[in-house]
């Protein structure tokens, strides 16, 4: 029963969602809207599970005095203070907005901006023209990096002969655009069509109960 009930629910919901698309009957629409509401309600539980996992993990690190346990205290402090500010003062409350604008945004932006440094270091060490494929990738990357910023056009207009500049004043940008809308798009379309076919096949397998890896264990 533990496996059969979820399998039946998956089958009924999957088939219903499939056929309701083609039957715009008020009864079907009403059930469909009900299912969408359920889906949103279930989505909220993902947040609760996330917070629960975060609390459990960091509580364990503090009680065991694991290396860096002090940072777990900071996590708890952040969680309690921010949640309290939002619940008591509201999401437009001064403290809540202040925390978001002066702590959350700078910290998050700092973490993300570090990527530029790591990427530059990794590109210097690993982006090598070892094979023909790697060389093509390298050339495409340089063209796009050069064309996707105004300095590409600026240098082109400063260095190239005037007659060429008059004909194509924004050549680097246009070449980068061609790389994106030509070779890049062709490759992307192939990948996307493959992924979509895979998603359809997996969805059908889940609806029909052939694919069961989303249960606790495939061996059960």
């Amino acid at each position: 029963m533990k496996r059969q009930i979820p399998l039946i629910i998956s089958f009924v919901c999957g088939i219903f969602m499939l056929i309701q698309f083609f039957i715009p009957h008020p009864g079907f629409i009403s059930v469909y809207r009900g299912i969408l509401n359920w889906a949103r309600i279930i989505g909220v539980f993902a947040l609760i599970i996330g917070i629960g996992t975060l609390v459990r993990l960091h509580f364990r690190r503090i009680t065991r005095r694991s290396p860096g346990w002090f940072y777990s205290v900071v996590v708890f402090a952040g969680l309690i203070v921010t949640a309290s500010a939002g619940i008591i003062g509201g999401t437009r409350g001064k403290l809540f907005v202040w925390i978001f604008q002066n702590i959350n945004i700078p910290l998050d932006a700092t973490m993300f901006s570090l990527l530029a440094f790591f990427m530059a270091s990794a590109a210097y060490r690993a982006f090598r023209a070892r094979t023909l494929d790697a060389t093509l990738l390298l050339i495409a990357a340089v063209i796009v990096m050069f064309g996707r910023v105004p300095i590409g056009d600026f240098l082109w207009q400063a260095v190239a002969p005037q007659s060429w500049v008059d004909k194509v004043p924004f050549l680097p940008e246009q070449v980068a655009e061609w790389v994106m809308s030509g070779p890049n798009m062709a490759a992307r379309r192939g990948i996307m069509i493959g992924a979509a076919l895979g998603a359809i096949s997996t969805s059908l397998k889940i609806i029909l109960g052939i694919e069961r890896s989303h249960f606790a264990s495939s061996s059960q």
């Binding site: 530029a116 530059a120 210097y124 982006f127 090598r128 340089v142 990096m145 910023v149 105004p150 300095i151």
Partner: peptide, 21 residues
């Protein structure tokens, strides 16, 4: 800033490849 960062990365990638070759 983004223009200069792109130029710096292009320079580093080219330098890395010249040295590698």
């Amino acid at each position: 800033a983004q223009s200069m960062a792109h130029l710096a990365i292009i320079f580093l990638v080219l330098l890395g490849n010249v040295v590698y070759l």
